[in-house]
Each structure stands twice: as C-alpha cells, then as structure tokens.
Nucleic acid binder design. Structure first.
Lengths: 168, 168
DNA sequence: ACGGTTTGGTTGTAGCGTCAACTAAAGCCT
DNA sequence: AGGCTTTAGTTGACGCTACAACCAAACCGT
C-alpha cells in the first residue's frame, strides 16, 4: 500500500495541531486543580450535571456526554460522591440504572470554578483569535468531527441540531 | 471580578474544539496500538529519535520534544529498552546525562508503523479539510501556541521546518 | 581544592484509566 | 412461569503518569 506522505503545509499544520492537542488539556487541568481542586474531567462531569434537568443524569448518558467509559465514570462518580459533590441513587423507573445528581455543594463548586475556567479558555484560545478565525475554527471542527465521531457520541455537545434526549 | 462569558459563536467553537481535543488522541492511540503495538506517545518518542543525528538524543532533549516530564520519559524509555526498541547509555561528554538511541529493531518498528499512522492522520483530519482550511488551521495554531507554550518548549516541533521524514 | 548549589536522571508511591469478570435488573420468547 | 439474552453498572487487578525524595556528576565562588 503506497503512502501519500504529508506535504509541507500539511505537515506544518498537523504538527501545530498536535502541539495544541498536547498542551491544551494540561493547561486547563493545571488551572482547575490549582483554583478549584478539580481535574478538568471532574469539572466537566459537574458542569454537565449542572445543566441537566433536576441536575440529574443517568450514568450512561453522563458517560456519553463526557466521552468516558462507564468504568471510568463509575470510579470518578464514586470519588465525587465521597467528596459530597454529587449523590447517586437507583433510578425508580429502571432498577438497573443509577442516577447521579449534583448536590448543593457540587453546584457551589461549579459556580465558583466556572469564571476561572472561562478565563483560562479566553486567555489561552479565544482571545488569541479574530472573530473570523473563531468562525474558521468552527468550520474546521465541523469538517473533522464526523470522522472523529462517526457514531456521534459527543454530538449533543457540539451539534445544535443533535437530538438531546438527555431528559429521559 | 466580572466574568466575560462566551457568546454563542465562541461557545460553539470552544465546544467543538474540546470535542476534537478529546477524541483525536484516542483515535491515534487506537490505530497505533492495534497495528503496531505502540502507544501514540511511544511512537512519538521513537519518531523523534529516528530523525535525530545518530538516531540518538539526550533524555532531557527528548523530554522537551515530546512534552514529557523526565520522570515519565524515564519510565517509558526503560520499557522501550526492555523491548529492545531503544538502548540507553551514559553520555561520554557529561557523566550525568543519559543518551537514548534507536536500535535497528526500533527503526524497523517506526518504519513499519509510519504509513498507517499517516493514513489515520489523513483519514481523520487532513483529508477532511480544504487547502484553505489547512492554512487557516496553521494560522489559528500560530495564534494560540504562544499562549499555550510561552516558554516555547515544543517550538522545535511546530516553528521551523524540521527534517521531512516520518515525524508526524 | 573544596564545599555548596545546580543539573540530569532514577526510583518509590499513590492516583487515575482500562480491561476483564462479575452482579443484577429488564426484555424477550415460548 | 421459566430460561436465555441484553442492558446498566460495579469491582479488582494491572499499567501508565505525576509528585516527591533521592543519588551522582558537573559547576562555581572562594
């Protein structure tokens, strides 16, 4: 199988993208840990719950939203439970399912963490871009995401037209 | 402190970028593990060595190129050594330093892994973009990277054109 | 040349994520 | 009703990474 290698433009764009992908998670994680004692993933879990009806989600749906395996989510939610940021209880309609609900303490934690997080998002990415570039980034991600996420597991997050069956 | 929240365009672009950042490493990792038995990080370490003079680098420099702590690199290079893909030896000029050199087996491994990896890069990202978008991505990353990498730790990767071989 | 500091790297420990195995409830078929 | 399959989630063991402590070589001022 003969390989189409990358030309100079492609190679440069790719390496820069890889650098961003490599550095961005660490930047977000560092700020959140320092200022709020949360990993980025933990913050994201709490943020998803904070936007859900009743601040409650089934584990499976929460896993889809956060791109986590059920195993990972089970471990993380147990720790968040032990820290009093969420609580878990068996779903009344389906005895197999577990619901995770944000506690008042968890809500306060998200509310306090959000400004600093948004500030980091601005400082590292958005404020560095012109409005045109924000639009271009939008379009580039739209072109790439169907290939990265063919099953549209994360579509609820990035596609406004996605069916948001979060409520059930 | 007043928070400048994200407007709709910013929020949409941000969520899409986050989805890409979340999904891309997994996609690369899955393909490389399946086809070559390497994590993406291990592949990247071998690729950096493959382009270095004598296929040899000091641990510290290799750590900079791969954005890894020395601790992480020490563990990974020990495993790669045990698998016979690299070898380590004390640097003659500086007794403190350790040099890592790609073995012939390591070289063969990289050469075998590269086409599939480049194929994945094309399939997931580059082939989804128009040439204009590749240029835009280039510019967007250029705007963002000084903020993500103020110390220019990874600048060698994304700034100057590097030796044009396998290093994607 | 010698004591303190800095630099380069390794090791131990603990936390997080993954894989495989498991439990339990729900659905389905007859 | 009884039994098989599917779905939801948890648990335990193991691998990888970060943090801290550590060791050794090189550097530096006196």
């Amino acid at each position: 199988m003969d390989t189409r290698w990358l030309d100079d433009d492609e190679r440069a764009a790719w390496l820069k993208l890889m650098a961003v992908v490599e550095l961005l998670p660490g930047a977000l994680d560092t700020q959140l840990r320092r200022d709020s004692g949360l990993s980025h993933f933990e913050y994201f879990v709490l943020a998803m719950l904070s936007e859900a009806p009743e601040r409650t989600l089934r584990m499976t749906q929460l896993g889809r939203l956060t791109n986590a395996t059920l195993t990972r989510l089970s471990h993380v939610s147990r720790r968040l439970d032990e820290r009093g940021l969420i609580e878990r209880f068996q779903c009344p309609e389906d005895g197999r399912a577990t619901n995770a609900r944000l506690t008042e303490k968890g809500w306060q934690t998200v509310v306090q963490a959000a400004p600093g997080h948004v500030g980091t998002v601005r400082a590292t990415v958005l404020d560095a871009l012109t409005p045109e570039q924000v639009g271009q980034l939008h379009a580039i991600a739209d072109a790439v995401l169907p290939r990265l996420d063919p099953d549209r597991r994360l579509a609820v997050l990035y596609d406004e037209t996605a069916p948001s069956d979060i409520a059930s």
